[in-house]
């Protein structure tokens, strides 16, 4: 695996190498992200803006470059989030499933190891996640949830910045190719 500093698009099939993770990483990291979102804001409320499960889904989807794998990760993480929330099971599951699928699709085309690409993709998928969740709440639950655009943009930027750091940390956990 090597960074292609000169361009962001994958120039050959050889560049699109699939990152592999140990099984415990695949289990612990998502679980830790969910627990972080559940418990950390209880003590540090200002960290409630972080969508750690989403960041984990985006990361695994981008780096594994498998659409099925990405959507399954998103599904499991989303359903786990739903289980711990007041939402009906499947609301965040559907959103994270789509995020995982599209992130994996993008990962097949772009050099997702590029920091700027990661920043932009994380920002974009955070917006996508928030917008699609708002859309589903209105459509499926009939709730009049307000979509705060500016706040969402700011939070998206913050999550993208945090995501860069998180992704860099998770890169250390990848198996050596």
């Amino acid at each position: 695996m090597s960074y292609s500093g000169g361009h962001i698009l994958l120039s050959s099939q050889r560049e699109s190498q699939v990152s592999r993770f140990p099984v415990w990483v695949m289990l612990v990291v998502p679980l830790a992200a969910i627990l972080f979102q559940v418990y950390v804001p209880l003590f540090f409320e200002f960290l409630s803006f972080l969508e750690m499960p989403l960041l984990v889904v985006v990361y695994f989807a981008l780096t594994r470059r498998s659409q099925v794998g990405g959507l399954l990760v998103g599904t499991l993480v989303g359903l786990a989030q739903d289980s711990l929330s007041k939402n009906p099971l499947g609301m965040l599951g559907i959103v994270n499933t789509l995020v995982g699928y599209f992130a994996a699709s993008v990962g097949l085309r772009l050099d997702v190891d590029h920091p700027m690409i990661r920043l932009l993709l994380t920002f974009f998928f955070f917006l996508f996640h928030q917008f699609f969740y708002w859309l589903m709440v209105r459509a499926l639950l009939g709730q009049q949830l307000v979509f705060e655009t500016q706040r969402t943009l700011v939070l998206g930027l913050l999550n993208a910045v945090v995501g860069i750091s998180l992704f860099h940390f998770l890169d250390k956990l990848r198996k050596a190719s």
């Binding site: 599904t75 359903l79 099971l89 499947g90 609301m91 599951g93 559907i94 499933t97 499926l140």
Partner: peptide, 10 residues
């Protein structure tokens, strides 16, 4: 998967 979760929601 989406369909299954939709059913689950509904």
């Amino acid at each position: 998967v989406i369909l299954a979760q939709l059913v689950l929601v509904e």
